[in-house]
Design a protein around this nucleic acid. Structure first.
Length: 555
RNA sequence: UGGGGUGUGGCCAAGUUGGUUAAGGCACGGGGUUUUGAUCCCCGCAUUCCCAGGUUCGAGUCCUGGCACCCCAGCCA
Protein backbone atom coordinates (compact mmCIF):
# COMPACT_ATOMS: atom_id res chain seq x y z
CA UNK A 1 0.00 0.00 0.00
CA UNK A 2 2.15 2.83 -1.21
CA UNK A 3 0.22 5.73 0.18
CA UNK A 4 3.50 7.51 0.83
CA UNK A 5 4.17 8.74 -2.67
CA UNK A 6 1.81 11.70 -3.10
CA UNK A 7 1.90 12.26 -6.86
CA UNK A 8 -0.94 13.95 -8.68
CA UNK A 9 -4.27 15.13 -7.28
CA UNK A 10 -6.10 11.86 -7.93
CA UNK A 11 -3.54 9.86 -6.00
CA UNK A 12 -3.82 12.38 -3.22
CA UNK A 13 -7.60 11.94 -3.09
CA UNK A 14 -7.24 8.17 -3.02
CA UNK A 15 -4.54 8.25 -0.37
CA UNK A 16 -6.80 10.40 1.78
CA UNK A 17 -9.75 8.08 1.22
CA UNK A 18 -7.59 5.16 2.27
CA UNK A 19 -6.36 7.00 5.34
CA UNK A 20 -9.95 7.69 6.34
CA UNK A 21 -10.90 4.06 5.84
CA UNK A 22 -13.31 4.82 3.01
CA UNK A 23 -14.43 1.87 0.84
CA UNK A 24 -13.00 -0.58 3.40
CA UNK A 25 -9.56 0.23 2.08
CA UNK A 26 -10.42 -0.97 -1.42
CA UNK A 27 -9.30 0.76 -4.60
CA UNK A 28 -11.14 -0.37 -7.69
CA UNK A 29 -11.03 1.49 -11.01
CA UNK A 30 -12.12 0.70 -14.53
CA UNK A 31 -11.21 1.58 -18.10
CA UNK A 32 -14.54 1.99 -19.95
CA UNK A 33 -14.05 2.38 -23.73
CA UNK A 34 -16.87 2.44 -26.22
CA UNK A 35 -16.07 -0.07 -28.97
CA UNK A 36 -16.71 2.41 -31.75
CA UNK A 37 -13.15 2.89 -32.97
CA UNK A 38 -9.53 2.10 -32.21
CA UNK A 39 -7.80 3.33 -29.09
CA UNK A 40 -5.45 6.33 -29.32
CA UNK A 41 -2.81 7.92 -27.11
CA UNK A 42 -5.49 9.78 -25.20
CA UNK A 43 -6.87 6.42 -24.16
CA UNK A 44 -3.36 5.31 -23.25
CA UNK A 45 -3.29 8.10 -20.69
CA UNK A 46 -6.53 6.84 -19.19
CA UNK A 47 -5.41 3.21 -19.28
CA UNK A 48 -2.12 3.99 -17.55
CA UNK A 49 -3.96 6.11 -14.99
CA UNK A 50 -6.63 3.55 -14.17
CA UNK A 51 -4.51 0.40 -14.27
CA UNK A 52 -1.56 2.25 -12.79
CA UNK A 53 -3.50 3.43 -9.76
CA UNK A 54 -4.98 -0.02 -9.23
CA UNK A 55 -1.48 -1.47 -9.31
CA UNK A 56 0.04 1.12 -7.00
CA UNK A 57 -2.64 0.72 -4.36
CA UNK A 58 -2.93 -3.06 -4.69
CA UNK A 59 -6.39 -2.58 -6.08
CA UNK A 60 -8.15 -3.80 -9.20
CA UNK A 61 -8.98 -2.34 -12.58
CA UNK A 62 -11.75 -3.68 -14.79
CA UNK A 63 -12.00 -3.49 -18.54
CA UNK A 64 -15.57 -2.59 -19.35
CA UNK A 65 -17.00 -1.93 -22.78
CA UNK A 66 -19.54 0.86 -22.76
CA UNK A 67 -21.59 -0.66 -25.55
CA UNK A 68 -24.96 1.02 -25.37
CA UNK A 69 -25.11 2.40 -28.89
CA UNK A 70 -25.43 -0.53 -31.33
CA UNK A 71 -25.31 1.75 -34.35
CA UNK A 72 -21.64 2.56 -33.93
CA UNK A 73 -20.15 -0.41 -32.17
CA UNK A 74 -18.77 -3.71 -33.39
CA UNK A 75 -16.68 -6.73 -32.59
CA UNK A 76 -13.59 -5.63 -34.52
CA UNK A 77 -13.27 -2.65 -32.20
CA UNK A 78 -13.74 -4.81 -29.13
CA UNK A 79 -10.91 -7.10 -30.20
CA UNK A 80 -8.56 -4.28 -31.15
CA UNK A 81 -9.14 -2.60 -27.81
CA UNK A 82 -8.36 -5.76 -25.87
CA UNK A 83 -5.17 -6.26 -27.88
CA UNK A 84 -4.10 -2.65 -27.33
CA UNK A 85 -4.61 -2.73 -23.57
CA UNK A 86 -2.60 -5.96 -23.35
CA UNK A 87 0.13 -4.54 -25.54
CA UNK A 88 0.44 -1.55 -23.23
CA UNK A 89 1.20 -4.05 -20.52
CA UNK A 90 -2.01 -4.23 -18.53
CA UNK A 91 -4.24 -7.17 -17.64
CA UNK A 92 -7.84 -7.13 -16.47
CA UNK A 93 -7.62 -10.86 -15.64
CA UNK A 94 -11.15 -12.24 -15.29
CA UNK A 95 -12.70 -8.80 -15.05
CA UNK A 96 -13.86 -8.21 -18.60
CA UNK A 97 -17.31 -6.63 -18.58
CA UNK A 98 -19.81 -5.23 -21.03
CA UNK A 99 -22.44 -2.68 -20.17
CA UNK A 100 -24.70 -4.74 -22.41
CA UNK A 101 -24.50 -7.54 -19.85
CA UNK A 102 -26.33 -5.20 -17.50
CA UNK A 103 -29.26 -4.52 -19.83
CA UNK A 104 -31.69 -6.70 -17.79
CA UNK A 105 -30.65 -5.07 -14.52
CA UNK A 106 -30.73 -1.61 -16.10
CA UNK A 107 -34.27 -2.31 -17.29
CA UNK A 108 -35.35 -3.33 -13.79
CA UNK A 109 -33.88 -0.15 -12.37
CA UNK A 110 -35.80 1.87 -14.96
CA UNK A 111 -39.01 0.23 -13.76
CA UNK A 112 -37.97 1.15 -10.23
CA UNK A 113 -37.53 4.78 -11.21
CA UNK A 114 -40.93 4.85 -12.92
CA UNK A 115 -42.64 3.39 -9.86
CA UNK A 116 -40.91 5.98 -7.72
CA UNK A 117 -42.24 8.71 -9.96
CA UNK A 118 -38.69 9.55 -11.02
CA UNK A 119 -39.00 8.63 -14.69
CA UNK A 120 -41.64 8.97 -17.37
CA UNK A 121 -42.28 8.08 -20.96
CA UNK A 122 -42.20 11.16 -23.15
CA UNK A 123 -43.93 11.14 -26.51
CA UNK A 124 -42.53 14.38 -27.81
CA UNK A 125 -40.44 14.19 -30.99
CA UNK A 126 -36.70 14.68 -30.81
CA UNK A 127 -37.07 18.20 -32.18
CA UNK A 128 -39.77 19.07 -29.67
CA UNK A 129 -37.67 17.79 -26.82
CA UNK A 130 -34.88 20.03 -27.96
CA UNK A 131 -37.21 23.03 -28.06
CA UNK A 132 -38.62 22.26 -24.63
CA UNK A 133 -35.15 21.94 -23.18
CA UNK A 134 -34.62 25.70 -23.28
CA UNK A 135 -31.21 27.29 -23.83
CA UNK A 136 -28.09 27.89 -21.80
CA UNK A 137 -29.61 31.06 -20.36
CA UNK A 138 -33.31 30.26 -20.34
CA UNK A 139 -34.99 27.47 -18.41
CA UNK A 140 -36.76 24.68 -20.25
CA UNK A 141 -40.42 23.81 -19.85
CA UNK A 142 -42.13 20.61 -18.84
CA UNK A 143 -43.25 18.14 -21.44
CA UNK A 144 -47.02 17.69 -21.59
CA UNK A 145 -46.34 13.99 -20.94
CA UNK A 146 -44.37 14.61 -17.78
CA UNK A 147 -47.24 13.81 -15.44
CA UNK A 148 -48.46 10.52 -16.85
CA UNK A 149 -49.51 8.04 -14.19
CA UNK A 150 -47.13 5.38 -12.99
CA UNK A 151 -49.40 2.74 -14.53
CA UNK A 152 -49.43 4.40 -17.92
CA UNK A 153 -45.66 4.87 -17.83
CA UNK A 154 -45.14 1.25 -16.93
CA UNK A 155 -47.45 0.11 -19.69
CA UNK A 156 -45.83 2.35 -22.29
CA UNK A 157 -42.27 1.47 -21.28
CA UNK A 158 -43.05 -2.24 -21.43
CA UNK A 159 -44.58 -1.75 -24.84
CA UNK A 160 -41.44 0.11 -25.92
CA UNK A 161 -39.38 -2.86 -24.84
CA UNK A 162 -41.77 -5.23 -26.61
CA UNK A 163 -41.21 -3.43 -29.88
CA UNK A 164 -44.69 -1.95 -30.18
CA UNK A 165 -43.34 1.43 -31.32
CA UNK A 166 -41.10 2.80 -34.00
CA UNK A 167 -37.80 4.50 -33.32
CA UNK A 168 -38.35 8.01 -32.05
CA UNK A 169 -41.96 7.59 -31.02
CA UNK A 170 -41.21 7.58 -27.31
CA UNK A 171 -38.30 7.83 -24.93
CA UNK A 172 -37.95 7.26 -21.22
CA UNK A 173 -36.79 10.34 -19.35
CA UNK A 174 -35.64 10.97 -15.81
CA UNK A 175 -37.91 13.41 -14.02
CA UNK A 176 -35.58 15.94 -12.45
CA UNK A 177 -35.81 19.66 -13.17
CA UNK A 178 -36.46 21.37 -16.48
CA UNK A 179 -35.26 24.67 -15.02
CA UNK A 180 -31.91 23.44 -13.79
CA UNK A 181 -28.97 25.64 -14.80
CA UNK A 182 -27.17 22.34 -15.49
CA UNK A 183 -28.55 21.21 -18.84
CA UNK A 184 -27.86 17.59 -17.97
CA UNK A 185 -30.47 17.72 -15.27
CA UNK A 186 -33.30 18.94 -17.53
CA UNK A 187 -35.05 15.56 -17.60
CA UNK A 188 -32.35 13.66 -19.50
CA UNK A 189 -33.34 10.84 -21.81
CA UNK A 190 -32.41 7.48 -20.35
CA UNK A 191 -33.83 5.04 -22.90
CA UNK A 192 -34.42 5.32 -26.63
CA UNK A 193 -35.86 2.91 -29.17
CA UNK A 194 -33.34 1.51 -31.67
CA UNK A 195 -34.27 -1.40 -33.88
CA UNK A 196 -30.69 -2.22 -34.54
CA UNK A 197 -28.76 -5.47 -34.10
CA UNK A 198 -26.37 -5.15 -31.18
CA UNK A 199 -22.98 -6.82 -31.55
CA UNK A 200 -23.53 -8.88 -28.42
CA UNK A 201 -27.24 -8.97 -27.62
CA UNK A 202 -28.41 -9.30 -31.22
CA UNK A 203 -32.10 -8.44 -31.58
CA UNK A 204 -32.93 -9.18 -27.97
CA UNK A 205 -33.46 -5.51 -27.21
CA UNK A 206 -34.99 -2.66 -29.15
CA UNK A 207 -34.60 -0.13 -26.36
CA UNK A 208 -31.10 0.97 -25.35
CA UNK A 209 -30.03 2.85 -22.23
CA UNK A 210 -28.10 6.12 -22.51
CA UNK A 211 -24.57 6.74 -21.26
CA UNK A 212 -25.36 8.80 -18.15
CA UNK A 213 -27.81 6.25 -16.89
CA UNK A 214 -25.71 3.21 -17.76
CA UNK A 215 -22.28 4.35 -16.68
CA UNK A 216 -22.93 5.14 -13.03
CA UNK A 217 -24.97 2.00 -12.51
CA UNK A 218 -22.32 -0.16 -14.20
CA UNK A 219 -19.70 1.37 -11.91
CA UNK A 220 -21.84 0.67 -8.86
CA UNK A 221 -22.59 -2.91 -9.88
CA UNK A 222 -18.89 -3.60 -10.28
CA UNK A 223 -18.00 -2.09 -6.93
CA UNK A 224 -15.88 0.64 -8.48
CA UNK A 225 -14.52 3.04 -5.85
CA UNK A 226 -13.08 5.79 -8.04
CA UNK A 227 -14.58 6.47 -11.45
CA UNK A 228 -12.04 8.49 -13.42
CA UNK A 229 -13.14 10.32 -16.53
CA UNK A 230 -12.26 13.39 -18.56
CA UNK A 231 -13.21 17.00 -17.89
CA UNK A 232 -16.11 17.23 -20.29
CA UNK A 233 -18.06 14.92 -18.00
CA UNK A 234 -17.74 17.25 -15.08
CA UNK A 235 -21.24 18.63 -15.53
CA UNK A 236 -22.53 15.08 -15.73
CA UNK A 237 -21.38 14.29 -12.23
CA UNK A 238 -24.58 15.72 -10.76
CA UNK A 239 -26.54 13.26 -12.86
CA UNK A 240 -24.18 10.41 -12.04
CA UNK A 241 -24.84 11.06 -8.38
CA UNK A 242 -28.56 11.60 -8.88
CA UNK A 243 -29.18 8.18 -10.41
CA UNK A 244 -27.16 6.41 -7.75
CA UNK A 245 -29.01 8.30 -5.03
CA UNK A 246 -32.40 7.20 -6.38
CA UNK A 247 -31.56 3.56 -6.95
CA UNK A 248 -30.93 0.62 -4.56
CA UNK A 249 -27.39 0.12 -5.83
CA UNK A 250 -24.67 -1.66 -3.81
CA UNK A 251 -22.36 1.35 -3.59
CA UNK A 252 -21.81 4.91 -4.76
CA UNK A 253 -18.50 5.36 -6.61
CA UNK A 254 -16.84 8.77 -6.72
CA UNK A 255 -16.43 10.34 -10.14
CA UNK A 256 -13.21 12.32 -10.54
CA UNK A 257 -12.39 14.23 -13.71
CA UNK A 258 -8.98 14.93 -15.23
CA UNK A 259 -7.85 16.72 -18.39
CA UNK A 260 -7.68 14.68 -21.57
CA UNK A 261 -4.45 14.41 -23.54
CA UNK A 262 -3.85 16.76 -26.44
CA UNK A 263 -0.75 16.46 -28.61
CA UNK A 264 0.39 19.05 -31.11
CA UNK A 265 0.73 18.24 -34.82
CA UNK A 266 -2.03 15.66 -34.67
CA UNK A 267 -5.70 15.17 -33.92
CA UNK A 268 -6.93 13.03 -31.09
CA UNK A 269 -10.59 12.28 -31.45
CA UNK A 270 -12.07 9.03 -32.61
CA UNK A 271 -14.41 10.89 -34.89
CA UNK A 272 -11.57 12.61 -36.74
CA UNK A 273 -9.31 9.59 -36.78
CA UNK A 274 -12.20 7.55 -38.12
CA UNK A 275 -12.56 10.11 -40.88
CA UNK A 276 -8.89 9.85 -41.86
CA UNK A 277 -9.34 6.11 -42.11
CA UNK A 278 -12.61 6.04 -44.01
CA UNK A 279 -11.51 8.76 -46.42
CA UNK A 280 -8.29 6.84 -47.08
CA UNK A 281 -6.07 9.74 -46.00
CA UNK A 282 -4.08 7.07 -44.16
CA UNK A 283 -3.77 3.30 -44.56
CA UNK A 284 -6.08 2.28 -41.76
CA UNK A 285 -6.22 2.70 -38.01
CA UNK A 286 -2.77 1.16 -37.62
CA UNK A 287 -1.04 3.40 -40.15
CA UNK A 288 2.30 4.28 -38.50
CA UNK A 289 1.46 7.97 -38.78
CA UNK A 290 -1.67 7.62 -36.68
CA UNK A 291 -1.68 8.55 -32.98
CA UNK A 292 -3.53 5.32 -32.34
CA UNK A 293 -2.09 2.64 -30.08
CA UNK A 294 -2.01 0.23 -33.01
CA UNK A 295 -0.37 2.93 -35.13
CA UNK A 296 2.46 3.68 -32.75
CA UNK A 297 2.93 -0.04 -32.15
CA UNK A 298 3.40 -0.63 -35.88
CA UNK A 299 5.64 2.39 -36.00
CA UNK A 300 7.90 0.73 -33.43
CA UNK A 301 7.19 2.69 -30.26
CA UNK A 302 7.85 0.39 -27.30
CA UNK A 303 4.99 0.09 -24.80
CA UNK A 304 7.37 1.14 -22.03
CA UNK A 305 7.95 4.43 -23.86
CA UNK A 306 4.23 5.13 -24.05
CA UNK A 307 3.86 4.32 -20.36
CA UNK A 308 6.76 6.58 -19.45
CA UNK A 309 5.22 9.34 -21.54
CA UNK A 310 1.92 9.03 -19.68
CA UNK A 311 3.84 9.24 -16.44
CA UNK A 312 5.80 12.32 -17.48
CA UNK A 313 2.95 14.45 -18.71
CA UNK A 314 1.22 14.27 -15.37
CA UNK A 315 -2.44 14.28 -14.45
CA UNK A 316 -4.13 17.62 -13.75
CA UNK A 317 -7.29 19.49 -14.56
CA UNK A 318 -5.47 21.95 -16.82
CA UNK A 319 -6.51 22.03 -20.44
CA UNK A 320 -3.13 21.65 -22.13
CA UNK A 321 -1.35 20.58 -25.29
CA UNK A 322 1.71 18.39 -24.92
CA UNK A 323 4.59 18.83 -27.36
CA UNK A 324 5.08 15.61 -29.37
CA UNK A 325 8.78 16.10 -28.65
CA UNK A 326 8.13 14.77 -25.16
CA UNK A 327 6.74 11.54 -26.60
CA UNK A 328 9.57 11.28 -29.11
CA UNK A 329 12.09 11.77 -26.36
CA UNK A 330 10.56 8.88 -24.38
CA UNK A 331 10.75 6.70 -27.47
CA UNK A 332 14.40 7.60 -28.10
CA UNK A 333 15.35 6.94 -24.51
CA UNK A 334 13.79 3.50 -24.48
CA UNK A 335 15.06 2.53 -27.91
CA UNK A 336 18.57 3.80 -27.21
CA UNK A 337 18.66 1.43 -24.26
CA UNK A 338 17.14 -1.60 -25.96
CA UNK A 339 17.82 -1.70 -29.68
CA UNK A 340 20.77 -3.38 -31.35
CA UNK A 341 22.84 -1.24 -33.72
CA UNK A 342 23.25 -2.15 -37.33
CA UNK A 343 24.59 -0.56 -40.53
CA UNK A 344 22.21 0.39 -43.31
CA UNK A 345 22.35 2.78 -46.25
CA UNK A 346 19.18 4.51 -47.34
CA UNK A 347 20.46 6.51 -50.28
CA UNK A 348 23.41 4.52 -51.70
CA UNK A 349 26.47 6.00 -53.35
CA UNK A 350 28.93 3.47 -54.79
CA UNK A 351 32.46 3.42 -53.44
CA UNK A 352 35.28 1.38 -54.95
CA UNK A 353 38.37 0.75 -52.84
CA UNK A 354 40.95 0.73 -55.62
CA UNK A 355 43.80 -0.76 -53.61
CA UNK A 356 41.69 -3.49 -52.02
CA UNK A 357 42.26 -6.99 -53.51
CA UNK A 358 39.63 -8.09 -56.03
CA UNK A 359 37.42 -10.82 -54.69
CA UNK A 360 38.65 -10.52 -51.12
CA UNK A 361 36.12 -10.54 -48.30
CA UNK A 362 36.91 -9.84 -44.66
CA UNK A 363 34.59 -10.36 -41.74
CA UNK A 364 34.83 -7.39 -39.41
CA UNK A 365 33.54 -7.25 -35.89
CA UNK A 366 30.78 -4.87 -34.92
CA UNK A 367 29.37 -4.40 -31.44
CA UNK A 368 25.63 -4.51 -31.03
CA UNK A 369 25.40 -1.80 -28.42
CA UNK A 370 28.11 0.69 -27.47
CA UNK A 371 27.05 0.94 -23.85
CA UNK A 372 25.90 -2.60 -23.23
CA UNK A 373 28.44 -5.36 -23.90
CA UNK A 374 25.86 -7.98 -22.95
CA UNK A 375 24.15 -7.38 -26.25
CA UNK A 376 27.10 -9.04 -27.96
CA UNK A 377 28.90 -8.70 -31.25
CA UNK A 378 28.41 -9.66 -34.86
CA UNK A 379 30.41 -9.97 -38.07
CA UNK A 380 30.03 -7.60 -40.98
CA UNK A 381 31.45 -8.45 -44.41
CA UNK A 382 33.80 -5.96 -46.08
CA UNK A 383 34.87 -6.01 -49.73
CA UNK A 384 36.18 -3.90 -52.58
CA UNK A 385 32.83 -2.45 -53.61
CA UNK A 386 30.77 -0.68 -51.00
CA UNK A 387 27.90 1.73 -50.66
CA UNK A 388 27.88 4.73 -48.39
CA UNK A 389 25.20 7.31 -47.69
CA UNK A 390 25.02 9.92 -50.43
CA UNK A 391 24.71 12.60 -47.72
CA UNK A 392 28.08 11.59 -46.36
CA UNK A 393 29.90 12.95 -49.38
CA UNK A 394 30.17 16.51 -50.54
CA UNK A 395 32.16 17.61 -53.52
CA UNK A 396 32.71 21.04 -52.08
CA UNK A 397 32.33 20.61 -48.32
CA UNK A 398 32.18 23.48 -45.83
CA UNK A 399 34.84 23.55 -43.11
CA UNK A 400 32.55 22.07 -40.43
CA UNK A 401 31.65 19.03 -42.58
CA UNK A 402 33.41 16.01 -41.06
CA UNK A 403 32.54 13.47 -43.71
CA UNK A 404 33.95 12.51 -47.09
CA UNK A 405 35.06 14.91 -49.78
CA UNK A 406 37.71 14.94 -52.52
CA UNK A 407 41.06 14.21 -50.91
CA UNK A 408 39.52 13.76 -47.46
CA UNK A 409 39.97 10.80 -45.15
CA UNK A 410 37.20 9.31 -43.00
CA UNK A 411 36.70 6.14 -41.03
CA UNK A 412 34.32 3.48 -42.23
CA UNK A 413 32.75 2.26 -39.03
CA UNK A 414 34.45 -0.92 -37.74
CA UNK A 415 36.49 -1.09 -40.97
CA UNK A 416 39.25 1.13 -42.37
CA UNK A 417 40.20 4.71 -42.98
CA UNK A 418 39.57 5.56 -46.60
CA UNK A 419 40.56 8.55 -48.67
CA UNK A 420 38.59 9.81 -51.64
CA UNK A 421 40.81 10.02 -54.71
CA UNK A 422 38.41 10.51 -57.54
CA UNK A 423 34.79 11.49 -58.13
CA UNK A 424 33.00 9.83 -61.02
CA UNK A 425 30.00 11.57 -62.60
CA UNK A 426 27.50 10.63 -65.24
CA UNK A 427 26.65 12.70 -68.29
CA UNK A 428 24.16 14.73 -66.27
CA UNK A 429 26.90 15.69 -63.85
CA UNK A 430 25.58 13.60 -60.95
CA UNK A 431 28.11 11.89 -58.73
CA UNK A 432 27.69 8.17 -59.32
CA UNK A 433 30.80 6.70 -57.78
CA UNK A 434 33.75 7.47 -55.56
CA UNK A 435 37.16 5.88 -56.17
CA UNK A 436 38.95 5.60 -52.86
CA UNK A 437 41.97 3.97 -51.31
CA UNK A 438 42.14 2.39 -47.89
CA UNK A 439 44.91 2.19 -45.34
CA UNK A 440 45.43 -1.51 -44.52
CA UNK A 441 47.03 -0.46 -41.21
CA UNK A 442 43.70 0.90 -39.93
CA UNK A 443 41.69 -2.31 -39.82
CA UNK A 444 39.05 -2.01 -37.11
CA UNK A 445 39.24 1.75 -37.27
CA UNK A 446 42.44 2.69 -35.42
CA UNK A 447 45.56 4.15 -37.02
CA UNK A 448 48.83 2.78 -35.56
CA UNK A 449 50.46 6.15 -36.12
CA UNK A 450 47.82 7.76 -33.94
CA UNK A 451 46.40 10.03 -36.61
CA UNK A 452 42.77 11.00 -36.20
CA UNK A 453 39.90 11.44 -38.60
CA UNK A 454 36.99 13.69 -37.75
CA UNK A 455 34.28 11.58 -39.28
CA UNK A 456 33.05 8.03 -39.04
CA UNK A 457 30.47 6.98 -41.60
CA UNK A 458 28.39 3.87 -42.15
CA UNK A 459 28.59 1.59 -45.16
CA UNK A 460 27.50 -1.72 -46.55
CA UNK A 461 29.28 -4.26 -48.78
CA UNK A 462 27.71 -4.28 -52.25
CA UNK A 463 27.80 -8.00 -52.85
CA UNK A 464 26.55 -8.85 -49.35
CA UNK A 465 23.90 -6.22 -48.76
CA UNK A 466 20.29 -7.17 -48.59
CA UNK A 467 17.62 -4.96 -50.05
CA UNK A 468 14.67 -3.60 -48.16
CA UNK A 469 11.89 -1.08 -48.49
CA UNK A 470 12.17 1.66 -45.91
CA UNK A 471 9.36 4.05 -45.03
CA UNK A 472 10.22 7.40 -43.53
CA UNK A 473 7.54 9.21 -41.58
CA UNK A 474 7.05 12.82 -40.70
CA UNK A 475 4.28 14.51 -38.75
CA UNK A 476 0.79 13.93 -40.12
CA UNK A 477 -0.17 17.61 -39.90
CA UNK A 478 1.89 20.64 -40.78
CA UNK A 479 0.32 22.91 -38.17
CA UNK A 480 0.84 22.48 -34.47
CA UNK A 481 -2.89 22.88 -33.98
CA UNK A 482 -4.74 21.33 -36.96
CA UNK A 483 -8.15 22.16 -35.50
CA UNK A 484 -7.28 25.85 -35.29
CA UNK A 485 -7.26 26.16 -39.08
CA UNK A 486 -10.77 27.52 -39.46
CA UNK A 487 -12.80 25.38 -41.73
CA UNK A 488 -11.21 22.17 -42.89
CA UNK A 489 -8.89 20.64 -40.34
CA UNK A 490 -7.74 18.21 -43.02
CA UNK A 491 -6.36 21.06 -45.12
CA UNK A 492 -3.21 20.99 -43.02
CA UNK A 493 -2.46 17.33 -43.70
CA UNK A 494 1.24 16.98 -44.48
CA UNK A 495 1.60 15.70 -48.07
CA UNK A 496 5.10 14.46 -47.25
CA UNK A 497 4.24 12.60 -44.08
CA UNK A 498 5.42 9.37 -45.70
CA UNK A 499 8.38 8.87 -47.97
CA UNK A 500 9.04 5.42 -49.37
CA UNK A 501 12.52 4.19 -50.24
CA UNK A 502 12.20 1.13 -52.42
CA UNK A 503 15.76 -0.14 -52.34
CA UNK A 504 17.65 0.61 -49.19
CA UNK A 505 20.69 -1.61 -48.50
CA UNK A 506 21.13 -3.35 -45.17
CA UNK A 507 23.98 -5.31 -43.66
CA UNK A 508 23.28 -9.04 -44.06
CA UNK A 509 22.73 -9.77 -40.37
CA UNK A 510 19.31 -8.19 -40.81
CA UNK A 511 18.27 -11.40 -42.51
CA UNK A 512 17.41 -12.60 -39.05
CA UNK A 513 15.08 -9.69 -38.32
CA UNK A 514 11.58 -10.56 -37.23
CA UNK A 515 8.43 -8.45 -37.58
CA UNK A 516 8.14 -5.87 -34.85
CA UNK A 517 11.85 -5.89 -34.02
CA UNK A 518 13.43 -2.46 -33.75
CA UNK A 519 17.04 -1.69 -34.72
CA UNK A 520 19.09 1.41 -34.67
CA UNK A 521 20.44 2.01 -38.16
CA UNK A 522 23.57 3.82 -37.00
CA UNK A 523 23.57 7.55 -37.58
CA UNK A 524 20.08 7.40 -39.09
CA UNK A 525 17.49 6.45 -36.54
CA UNK A 526 15.43 3.58 -35.22
CA UNK A 527 13.64 1.28 -37.62
CA UNK A 528 11.01 -1.36 -37.00
CA UNK A 529 10.35 -4.31 -39.29
CA UNK A 530 6.78 -4.06 -40.51
CA UNK A 531 4.62 -7.03 -39.67
CA UNK A 532 2.04 -6.43 -42.33
CA UNK A 533 3.83 -5.63 -45.58
CA UNK A 534 7.15 -7.41 -45.25
CA UNK A 535 7.77 -10.39 -47.50
CA UNK A 536 10.91 -12.51 -47.33
CA UNK A 537 12.36 -11.19 -50.60
CA UNK A 538 11.64 -7.62 -49.58
CA UNK A 539 11.30 -6.77 -45.90
CA UNK A 540 9.80 -3.41 -45.02
CA UNK A 541 11.18 -1.21 -42.26
CA UNK A 542 9.31 1.70 -40.73
CA UNK A 543 11.36 4.52 -39.37
CA UNK A 544 10.22 4.78 -35.80
CA UNK A 545 12.08 7.98 -35.03
CA UNK A 546 15.26 9.71 -36.15
CA UNK A 547 18.31 10.09 -33.97
CA UNK A 548 18.84 13.55 -32.54
CA UNK A 549 20.86 15.39 -35.15
CA UNK A 550 22.82 18.43 -34.03
CA UNK A 551 24.50 18.60 -37.44
CA UNK A 552 21.16 19.06 -39.17
CA UNK A 553 20.36 21.75 -36.64
CA UNK A 554 23.67 23.48 -37.29
CA UNK A 555 23.00 23.58 -41.00
C1' U B 1 -23.97 37.24 -12.40
C1' G B 2 -27.13 30.72 -16.97
C1' G B 3 -24.12 26.57 -14.92
C1' G B 4 -19.43 24.07 -14.45
C1' G B 5 -14.01 24.47 -14.81
C1' U B 6 -8.80 26.31 -15.53
C1' G B 7 -4.83 30.16 -15.22
C1' U B 8 3.29 28.94 -12.27
C1' G B 9 9.25 30.03 -17.85
C1' G B 10 8.47 28.38 -25.28
C1' C B 11 5.58 23.18 -23.80
C1' C B 12 4.23 20.18 -19.54
C1' A B 13 4.49 20.33 -14.15
C1' A B 14 5.92 20.32 -8.54
C1' G B 15 4.66 23.71 -4.93
C1' U B 16 -1.64 21.55 -0.20
C1' U B 17 -1.34 23.72 7.02
C1' G B 18 1.26 31.39 4.15
C1' G B 19 8.02 31.34 6.17
C1' U B 20 15.26 30.31 3.52
C1' U B 21 17.82 31.50 -3.06
C1' A B 22 10.00 29.08 -7.11
C1' A B 23 11.45 21.13 -7.86
C1' G B 24 11.83 18.10 -12.22
C1' G B 25 11.14 16.87 -17.52
C1' C B 26 10.89 18.58 -22.75
C1' A B 27 12.76 22.50 -25.78
C1' C B 28 16.73 25.94 -26.15
C1' G B 29 22.10 27.88 -25.50
C1' G B 30 27.29 26.74 -24.04
C1' G B 31 31.25 23.13 -22.76
C1' G B 32 33.46 17.92 -22.10
C1' U B 33 33.84 12.48 -23.42
C1' U B 34 33.00 9.53 -27.87
C1' U B 35 35.12 4.51 -33.95
C1' U B 36 27.11 6.74 -34.27
C1' G B 37 27.77 15.02 -35.54
C1' A B 38 23.97 9.32 -31.24
C1' U B 39 24.32 8.10 -26.11
C1' C B 40 26.52 10.01 -21.66
C1' C B 41 28.42 14.12 -18.53
C1' C B 42 28.69 19.17 -16.75
C1' C B 43 26.81 24.39 -16.92
C1' G B 44 23.08 28.13 -18.20
C1' C B 45 17.80 29.06 -18.76
C1' A B 46 10.90 32.60 -14.05
C1' U B 47 13.81 38.86 -8.83
C1' U B 48 8.64 35.91 -10.32
C1' C B 49 3.64 32.65 -10.12
C1' C B 50 -3.14 35.93 -15.46
C1' C B 51 -3.96 41.33 -13.75
C1' A B 52 -5.13 45.01 -9.86
C1' G B 53 -5.84 46.12 -4.99
C1' G B 54 -5.82 44.30 0.20
C1' U B 55 -4.41 41.35 4.88
C1' U B 56 0.50 40.06 7.05
C1' C B 57 6.97 40.86 9.90
C1' G B 58 6.32 37.58 5.49
C1' A B 59 1.69 35.44 -0.12
C1' G B 60 2.40 31.46 -5.96
C1' U B 61 -0.10 30.01 -1.42
C1' C B 62 -5.36 34.02 2.38
C1' C B 63 -9.33 38.10 0.97
C1' U B 64 -11.76 41.40 -2.75
C1' G B 65 -12.44 42.86 -7.71
C1' G B 66 -11.27 42.15 -12.70
C1' C B 67 -9.37 39.60 -17.26
C1' A B 68 -8.44 35.32 -20.46
C1' C B 69 -9.38 30.49 -22.03
C1' C B 70 -12.13 25.57 -21.94
C1' C B 71 -16.86 22.55 -21.37
C1' C B 72 -22.55 22.16 -21.51
C1' A B 73 -28.71 23.14 -25.25
C1' G B 74 -27.49 14.24 -28.80
C1' C B 75 -33.14 10.02 -28.73
C1' C B 76 -23.60 10.07 -28.95
C1' A B 77 -20.05 8.51 -25.35
Amino acid sequence: MDTAAPGHFIRRIISEDLARGKNDGRVHTRFPPEPNGYLHLGHAKSICLNFGIAGDYHGLCNLRFDDTNPEKENEEYVESIKADVHWLGYDWKDRLYFASDYFPQLYEFALYLIRAGKAYVDSLSAEQIREYRGTLKEPGKNSPWRDRSVEENLELFEAMKAGAFNEGEHVLRARIDMASPNMNLRDPTIYRIRKTIHHRTGDEWCIYPMYDYTHCISDALEGITHSLCTLEFEDHRALYDWFLDQLPVPCHPQQIEFARLNLNYTVMSKRKLNQLVSELRVDGWDDPRMPTISGVRRRGFPPAAVREFCERIGVTRNDTVIDVGVLENCVREELDRTSPRVLAVLDPLKVTIENYPDGQVEMLEGINHPNNPDMGKREIPFSKTLYIERDDFMEDPPKKFFRLGPGREVRLRYAYFITCNEVIKNAAGDVIELRCSYDPQTRGGQAPDGRKVKGTIHWVSAQHAMQAEVRLYDRLFMDADPEAADGDWKAGLNPDSRQVIKAALLEPSLNAATPGAVYQFERLGYFCMDGKDSISEQPVFNRTITLRDSWAKQK
